[in-house]
Amino acid sequence: MTSIGTGYDLSNSVFSPDGRNFQVEYAVKAVENGGTAIGIRCKDGVVLALEKLVTSKLLKKDANKRIATVDRNIGVVYSGLQPDGRHFVSRARDEAASWRSTYKAPIPVSSLANRMGAYVQAYTLYSSVRPFGITGIVGGWDAEKEVDVDGAVGSGPKTGSGGKVQGAKEGGPYLYMIEPSGSYWGYYGAATGKGRQAAKSELEKMKLDPKAGDCVSLEEGVKEAARIIYLAHEDNKDKDFELEMTWVSAMSGPTQGRHEEVPKELREEAERLAKKALEGEDEEEEEEEEEKMEE
């Protein structure tokens, strides 16, 4: 960051001579200090998980949920400035509602990601605003069968104009990550926040490509997400944290197409396994060290 102090980093929407928008880069810094957030796109659903750092003993436990629902089938988790995240979520909800009022159907995850990318990008264009101090992960399930338009009564024509296409199938699990610059990509596994490096290297080890076969299931994804958050927290051990996890599956899956919190029992089981896995790793390391000592 050699250009600090040259004056090109004082206002949003201003390019430096080498073509950078420093205010956006600084916004990224705000994200990098936040608790780790990840999303995993599994075969039959999406898991979102968050390392929620506990800043005070006086906070009410298990309240203050940070992973938000948009419409019924989409979840949003973010790292960075909490109020900016709430702004992001509130806009996403407005987009979903406006989509419904136009098309009488839920917004596809890809379209939501696109609209939110455009919205976040607009906050890099003007000196009268600042960029979002968050990176948002958006995960959801698009209905795989044709659904009735909102407000439908009766069954409509069986064939002909307005008739249904038999056996039509699309949709499925989707996952996107939107950065302060407004750029976004689709992901198999996405991570952001302080522990993103550790989380990413774990995600890369997972089998997440549905075309490659033996793609992880939603339930495996939940357990893996818990383990990754616990692992990513290792570098930040002096602070307490709560694990927040949500998921969304197909209509036929455990959440029936809705974005929901992972049930307490399953989350606790996942946390137990995560802790065990971490202890195991420590022991292995210790054993290795011991072996070395013996050598």
């Binding site: 298990d62 309240a63 949920k65 938000a68 629902t69 419409d71 019924r72 909800r93 979903a96 509602a97 419904r100 009022s101 009488k104 909102d150 407000g151 009564v153 919190e261 049930p263 307490k264």
Partner: peptide, 21 residues
């Protein structure tokens, strides 16, 4: 019906924030 379904979506946002417990 559509108005009610959007109201339901909004209500769901509210209950979601306080958790399963």
């Amino acid at each position: 019906d559509r108005l009610l379904s959007s109201l339901d979506v909004q209500e769901n946002y509210r209950s979601g924030s306080s958790g399963h417990g």
